[in-house]
Design a protein around this nucleic acid. Structure first.
Lengths: 228, 228
DNA sequence: GGAGTGGGTTTACAAGCGTTAAGTTACACC
DNA sequence: GGTGTAACTTAACGCTTGTAAACCCACTCC
């Protein structure tokens, strides 16, 4: 089922060739960890280009990073661990994105909440494959794996995003623009709505969405006063 | 990345052994198409048990169906086509489920809408893997494939579900229990919200959802009068 | 009752995968 | 200036996968 195993449909270009010529020079003594970052970056690149997590194989990542496949074992116990690291990094990007959106918008609580939600959706739009891996991946709780990042910690990372939403919603309530009576629950509902939109967009780009679907969902789920 | 290619983590039981003993007898002359249904059923079974679409390989399906791998070619051009058929069948199940929910609930428009939404969510809960395939699968528009079911037709199938929601919402508006002023757009928003909830549940079962998250989302997105 | 064909099976191939074991090379340190 | 070891590479194994080619076999039809 992997692309590689479909010789007949192999018309698709191989996605993970090394960056052309540029032969790697081994990292100096103390800084072997630098390769770890390169591996994660290579995996993200493979994921983005192929569009599916199945393409992120050990060997594909190695090709992309310009190293040999076994070299990866020094940094990751197995292929899923690489994808986990990619997801972790993406969560950090998202967190940063949301914080930035919240900070830079100064037009009042409602505008701020809309900005945060817009940041969330724009992130998903710009990195659809990564978004799918973050929230669509099934992180099986494999007890016997050395890696630290499990389903639980992925959920924890997602919960951080939820905090930002809850804070924004709370502001709106304090301001009187939101009629929500249960900020926690409504923030969850809001996040789930955003997720539904973001995910479905990341999967089927061309769907006849209403033009104002973003603001509409935020307005409804955040119980924003339509009059304002 | 496929489970099979992970000999080290091959402690997981093989999922697609034939149903034990029961040797197949070839189908009679005119009814070769019967095997097609058996293949789809086998693929669905493999998908349900493995929990991931990657596991639905040509050979795994064949093992499960108790036939040889090449036999599948008589009925499907390639493995993705099998998954497509599974999705198609699942959409039909969903459609039936929603219609049933709408029919059997006689407690007024609001209750009916909630029942339809509940039916949607329960379907996703009962068939999480299939749900992920239906809405999470990336149906690349491969022009040179004989199969008829493409991304477009999957979207069309999904649109049917949307119709049922829109009808339910329209009833609520007519009844005065919904304050929606744009049924079409709000129905889309409602569906996206349901999808977000359904999908995230299908991925991370144990997340600290608010208890009333279902009704809450429906109430908010359908602009239902909270007083009632 | 022989031919033809629908409904499969057997066998085989090439490719890609994860993983192990055994090198190799360059640098830090004594 | 030798030694040890971090940071890799090469080579190879065993496995699963999709797919093509050839084959078999029961049944229908003339």
């Amino acid at each position: 089922m992997s692309a590689a195993a479909h010789p007949a449909s192999a018309s698709v270009a191989r996605v993970s060739t090394p960056p052309e010529g540029h032969t790697r020079t081994r990292n100096p003594r103390g800084q072997g960890d630098r390769l770890r970052d390169e591996i994660v970056a290579a995996a993200a690149a493979v994921l983005d280009e192929a569009g599916t997590a199945e393409a992120v194989t050990l060997r594909a990542v190695a090709r992309r990073a310009g190293i040999s496949a076994p070299s990866i074992y020094r940094h990751f116990p197995d292929p899923p661990a690489i994808l986990l690291a990619v997801a972790q990094e993406a969560f950090e990007m998202l967190r940063h994105r949301l914080a930035e959106a919240a900070e830079s918008e100064r037009g009042g609580p409602t505008a701020r909440l809309q900005a945060v939600c817009g940041g969330y959706l724009r992130f998903a739009e710009e990195h659809p494959s990564r978004y799918r891996v973050m929230f669509g991946g099934v992180w099986r709780a494999d007890p016997d794996r050395g890696d630290s990042l499990t389903e639980a910690s992925v959920l924890a990372l997602g919960a951080e995003a939820l905090e930002v939403l809850a804070a924004g919603l709370a502001e709106c309530v304090a301001d009187g623009t939101s009629l929500s009576t249960d900020v926690r629950a409504d923030a969850t509902a809001l996040w789930l709505g955003l997720h539904g939109l973001a995910h479905q967009r990341a999967v089927a780009a061309r769907f006849p969405w209403p033009e104002d679907i973003e603001t509409r969902m935020v307005r409804l789920l955040a119980s924003l006063d339509p009059a304002r």
